[in-house]
Design a protein around this nucleic acid. Structure first.
Lengths: 154, 154
DNA sequence: TCTTTTTGGTTGCAAAATGCAACTCATTGG
DNA sequence: CCAATGAGTTGCATTTTGCAACCAAAAAGA
């Protein structure tokens, strides 16, 4: 299902039939996924995001608004007219796999072997195993063993 | 391991300790992942990429060069013809999981239920099951059951 | 062989996105 | 009440992108 404002604002897609392209149209700019990353790591207030990402404040204002419009973040006002903060929607939380894939690729290809980096761990402190696409029977697949059908409507 | 030119050119990272941020610095712009997507789907020549993505040619020139510099594409001279084309490196092929994650999120959240879209299938024509991050024991994990350690060097 | 077309770019300029600093205006802590 | 902080907005300079025209080498055709 498409996000709220994507409907009202009649989003113009780079490549309307490709889910990869639509995803990039929604969160594929320089900052949106870093904002989502920080939201997943507990950031909720404007300044949380500003300090963690280092993004310019006017751009942050715009990105937060767009992520809300696109159904990835939600603005919640705490009980007594307090400060509003930003929380992930279900669609936003579902970006977890994408962020994990980005993190793991970065660990494999953007760091020297001994170079320090932050680490994503499960509840027992263990790093996650690598995400591996599989076919319907659980066998690993890759570029060579898959193909894109451009002419189907499932 | 870091890409060839990332070393020579002394890349300046948005957030040097975060693998997600480094990945986005390398392929997180408006076009790079669509170029990789098309390379995975068989595009090799300049004009293949130009027609599939619709990107402006000067930008395409620049993105292709950067992807080569960053170790994601390689320029290969075809056996008979003199014309060089672009093929994915191992690091580029390893972006498969990231592209699949983007595709699956797009299918779930950027399309109306009956809206047509391209489909990634395995060798027997079956769509791939959804990628699910798991812990070391194979149990599904998500935002709530994981955390980022910002102070470790594995 | 000579000409035409296609490929793979480059250059210059206009438009859009981004970054930076200064300025509001409400909330909160003392 | 007053100062400090949070959450933006506004204006301007810089950077990135898009568009169209131009160009040289390679391939194709006559």
């Amino acid at each position: 299902m498409v996000g709220a404002a994507a409907r009202t604002e009649e989003m113009s897609w780079t490549d309307p039939t490709c889910p990869v392209a639509r995803t990039l149209d929604l969160v594929g700019d320089r900052w949106s996924l870093l904002i989502v990353r920080d939201a997943m790591d507990g950031a909720r207030a404007f300044t949380d995001f500003q300090h963690r990402t280092g993004i310019a404040r006017n751009i942050l204002t715009d990105r937060l608004r767009r992520l809300v419009e696109r159904g990835i973040l939600d603005r919640q006002t705490a009980p007594t007219g307090r400060r509003r903060n930003y929380v992930l929607t279900e669609a936003g939380r579902d970006l977890f796999a994408l962020i994990v894939a980005a993190r793991q690729w970065g660990e494999r290809h953007a760091f020297a072997p001994a170079e320090p980096h932050s680490l994503l761990v499960d509840e027992s402190g263990q790093p996650l195993p690598e995400l591996r696409p599989t076919d319907a029977h659980g066998r690993p697949v890759d570029v060579d063993t898959t193909s894109v059908q451009h002419d189907r409507c499932p």
